[in-house]
Computed example of a mutant assay.
Amino acid sequence: MSEAGVAYGKVMRDGLWDQNVVFSQLLAMCPTMAVTTSGTNGLGMGLATTAVLVASNMLISAIRNYVSDQVRIPVFVVVIATLVTLVDMSLNAWLHELYKVLGLFIALIVVNCAILGRAEAFAFKNGVVASAVDGLAMGLGFTFALTVMGLVRELIGSGTLFSQASLLLGPSFSFLEMKVIPDYVGVLMMILPPGGFLALGFLLVAKRQLERRLASRRVPEPASHCAV
Score class of each variant (00 low, 15 high):
Y184H: 07
I156G: 06
Q70W: 09
R218S: 10
L161K: 04
V185Q: 04
E120R: 14
V71D: 09
T147E: 09
Q19C: 02
F23K: 06
V79G: 12
G157Y: 12
G46V: 03
W94H: 15
M12R: 00
L26T: 11
M190N: 11
P171Y: 07
L214I: 12
T143E: 00
M33N: 00
R212F: 03
A114I: 13
F197S: 15
N41D: 12
S56Q: 09
M58S: 04
L83D: 00
K207Y: 06
P193H: 00
T37A: 10
A34I: 03
F142S: 07
I191W: 08
L95P: 00
L83K: 07
Y66L: 06
E3H: 07
L168G: 13
G201K: 09
L83E: 08
L136K: 10
E177S: 03
L151S: 03
C113Y: 03
V228N: 14
P222A: 04
A199T: 04
V148P: 01
A107S: 14
T37L: 01
G139K: 13
Q70V: 15
G195Q: 05
A215F: 03
C226G: 15
L116K: 02
L161R: 11
S131Q: 13
L59K: 10
D14A: 10
A165I: 10
S174G: 12
E211C: 09
G42R: 02
M45K: 01
V87A: 15
A81R: 03
F144W: 10
V78H: 03
L204I: 13
Y8F: 15
L91V: 07
L136Q: 00
G141E: 03
E3Y: 02
M189N: 12
V219S: 15
R72I: 13
S172T: 05
T85V: 15
W94G: 13
F122L: 07
P74M: 10
L198W: 03
V101F: 08
W94R: 12
V11P: 05
V219R: 15
L176V: 11
L53P: 00
L116M: 14
G159T: 07
V228P: 13
G15D: 08
L203A: 02
V185P: 02
G39L: 04
V205N: 04
A81Y: 01
L116E: 15
A137K: 07
R118F: 08
N57W: 00
M189C: 06
L104C: 07
P220R: 05
G44L: 02
G39V: 06
L140I: 08
G150A: 08
R118N: 15
N65D: 15
I181E: 14
T40V: 10
V77S: 09
L104I: 14
S224P: 04
D183S: 04
A51N: 05
L214M: 06
